[in-house]
């Protein structure tokens, strides 16, 4: 949506529309174990982007013909609540949500040891509660936390962030306004310990050199997000441990 005049996205001091420097993340908040019914759950905020994720499973699949004899299947739904956007979004799944459910599933599937749970399903439900840019990457970050909270073995956590190019400058963790007017949107997710890319999309035009620069910037953000993920899990489970030991 490009309604009205394009605002100035980088000021004279090189600051962004919300005062951040180009390589700065928004304030990031995370919680795990926020839902009672789910086997694992997580809540993640990237600034005003707010995402909640529940993981159910490994559990039996209905219908049965979807089972795989040698591993678990992954079912993933990325969904935006109708009140998450400026204009009400119809709750029916859009083409965008169908595509993102697929790329998010694929970003997580290679990380989970699915062969440990044959004939079962691991279900990941992502609800975007408020959208302000970077919802799919926040969703992945939250989903990997929820999987960890469900006790599902994984090679690594997955953390994601989107890099954009606004007013010709590469910027980390774009918000909605930046996304609207950005020349490039490059969402990336990685297994931080291995520096392996599990999600990569690009909407926009870049030279190869710019692409590498953007990817490096994404990696920088991902390493910081990964730290917060680890701290969140550590503090949660050290509390659980203390309770158990009492």
């Amino acid at each position: 949506m490009r309604l009205g005049e394009k605002p100035k996205l980088i000021d004279e001091n090189g600051r962004r529309i919300d005062g951040r420097l180009p390589d700065e993340l928004r304030p990031i908040r995370m919680e795990v174990g926020v839902l009672k019914n789910a086997d694992g759950s997580a809540y993640v905020e990237y600034g005003n982007t707010k995402v909640i994720v529940a993981v159910y499973g490994p559990r039996e699949i209905h219908p049965k013909h979807l089972t795989l004899p040698d591993r678990a299947i992954i079912r993933c739904r990325y969904h935006m609540t109708s009140f998450s956007t400026t204009e009400r979004k119809s709750p029916a799944p859009t083409r965008r949500e169908i595509e993102l459910s697929k790329v998010i599933r694929e970003a997580l599937e290679g990380v989970i040891f699915t062969e440990l749970y044959p004939r079962t399903s691991i279900d990941i439900f992502i609800e975007v509660l408020q959208a302000d840019g970077g919802t799919r990457t926040a969703g992945i970050t939250a989903a990997s936390l929820a999987l960890a909270d469900a006790g599902i073995p994984m090679k690594d956590l997955v953390a994601g962030v989107a890099v954009g190019k606004v007013d010709g400058v590469l910027v980390l963790d774009i918000n909605e306004v930046e996304d609207e007017y950005s020349e490039v949107d490059l969402p990336v997710a990685m297994m931080p310990s291995f520096k392996e890319i599990t999600l990569l999309q690009m909407n926009g035009v870049l030279t190869e050199d710019e692409f590498w620069e953007a990817l490096k910037l994404a990696e920088k953000g991902i390493m910081k997000i990964y730290e917060v993920q680890r701290e969140t899990l550590m503090s949660r489970y050290s509390k659980v441990r203390a309770e158990v030991e009492e």
Partner: peptide, 27 residues
């Protein structure tokens, strides 16, 4: 890829992963 040699879109699919070296070779 556009006719002037720029990267105009990217999409990773499938459950596997790519390293930086993979991407360099792929491009």
């Amino acid at each position: 890829i556009s006719d002037d040699g720029r990267i105009v879109g990217l999409q990773k699919a499938g459950p596997g992963v790519f390293t930086y070296d993979d991407l360099r070779l792929a491009i």
